[in-house]
Simulated scan of single mutants.
Amino acid sequence: MQDRFARRRPRTAAARPRTGAAVLAAACLLGTAALTGCDSGAGSTTKGAAAQPSARPGPVWDREPGSVAAVGDSITRGFDACSVLADCPEVSWATGTDGEVRSLAVRLLGDVKAASRSWNHARTGARMAQLPEQMGLAAQEKPDLVTVMIGANDACRDSARYMTPVADFRSSFEASMRQLRAGAPKAQVYVSSVPDLKRLWSTGRDNALGKQIWKLGICPSMLGDADDLGPAATARRAEVRERVVAYNGVLRDVCAKDRLCRYDGGAVFDYPFTGRQLSQWDWFHPGRDGQARLAEIAYRNVTAARPPA
């Protein structure tokens, strides 16, 4: 909203009628001085005094968006939640239709509208470098809200040395936000933190079946040699965790620069997933129960009067 300043006619040779001066004085007495630039002298202004613009109001966060588009990686696709090594988008925390999960879209829109007013553009295996393309697709839907959960695959590489550099991660996320704003300038954005991969390793490594699936190539930088507790393996896992923490710092900082973006405050990273909430096939990705927990976190943060601290 633009600030409004009083416009005053320059004095002419003809004297202003007293009735005009009286009206102006009365307006000041009625409390309109702040809007018209009146001072204590009727019909005059204080020399050198400049009208002060009012503070620009911030955007109002819509706690009841009418449509949802999701971008991200395998978690948002419900990977390994229904069957081994397969997507199951119907249980997605963001846009799924499963009655047990009650996705964010279902909680916000209801079952019927969620089916027609939500879109899932996430892709299993996606890294931050692929997010600008997904954001472009999401922008075409003109959604009220876009959910973002990505970054785990940037840390889950064949080796820790191949993890996405933090600077590149930042550059790609900034490009993603620009891509969204180019097509959907009014869309709100909810950004989830990257889960704590080390906690997931710690929780799942006691499951023999899960560790066999891990050997197929799931997050080798963290899950490789799952039973090795030696110094090198411990240092590797700590390095991966530190990179995830850095990624979350980027998500927080870039989101804070956008007036319609809300970061989860690290809620997903801090969530203590248990075996009950993990996939019964790989013991790493969220299962149905874990997807439901993610939906709860998102709904709580999206509908909160204030963003997470």
Rank of each mutant, 00 (worst) to 15 (best):
D3I: 14
D3T: 15
F5K: 15
A6Q: 12
A15Q: 07
A15M: 04
P17W: 03
G20Q: 06
A21P: 00
A22E: 02
L29H: 05
L30E: 03
T32L: 10
A33M: 08
T36P: 00
D39S: 10
S40K: 09
G41W: 10
G43L: 09
T45A: 12
K47V: 07
A49S: 06
Q52A: 07
S54C: 03
P57M: 06
G58R: 11
P59M: 07
W61I: 04
D62V: 06
R63Q: 02
A69G: 07
G72Q: 11
D73N: 13
T76N: 10
G78V: 13
F79K: 04
D80C: 06
V84E: 02
V84Y: 01
V84A: 02
A86S: 14
C88V: 11
P89Q: 12
S92D: 09
D98T: 05
D98V: 05
G99L: 08
G99M: 05
R102P: 00
L104R: 03
V106K: 02
V112E: 14
V112K: 14
A114D: 06
R117L: 15
W119P: 04
A122S: 15
G125D: 09
R127Y: 01
E133M: 12
A138L: 11
G151Q: 03
G151F: 07
D158S: 14
A160H: 05
A160R: 11
T164F: 11
P165N: 13
D168I: 02
S172G: 01
A175K: 14
S176E: 07
Q179S: 10
P185Q: 00
V194T: 12
V194L: 04
V194D: 08
P195L: 01
L200R: 04
W201G: 01
S202D: 12
G204E: 07
R205D: 13
D206H: 14
D206M: 08
L209Y: 08
G210H: 07
K211L: 14
Q212F: 07
W214R: 09
K215C: 07
G217W: 09
L223I: 04
G224T: 05
D225K: 11
A226H: 04
D227I: 13
D227E: 15
P231H: 04
A232Y: 11
A233G: 03
A233C: 08
T234E: 05
R241H: 03
V244I: 13
V244E: 00
V245C: 00
V245F: 00
A246P: 00
G249M: 13
R252T: 11
R252E: 15
D253Y: 08
D253P: 02
R259N: 06
L260Q: 06
Y263P: 14
A267P: 09
A267Q: 11
V268E: 07
D270T: 02
P272F: 06
G275K: 06
R276G: 10
Q277H: 13
W281F: 15
H285Y: 04
R288L: 07
G290I: 11
Q291S: 08
A292M: 00
I297S: 01
R300C: 04
V302N: 03
R306Q: 11
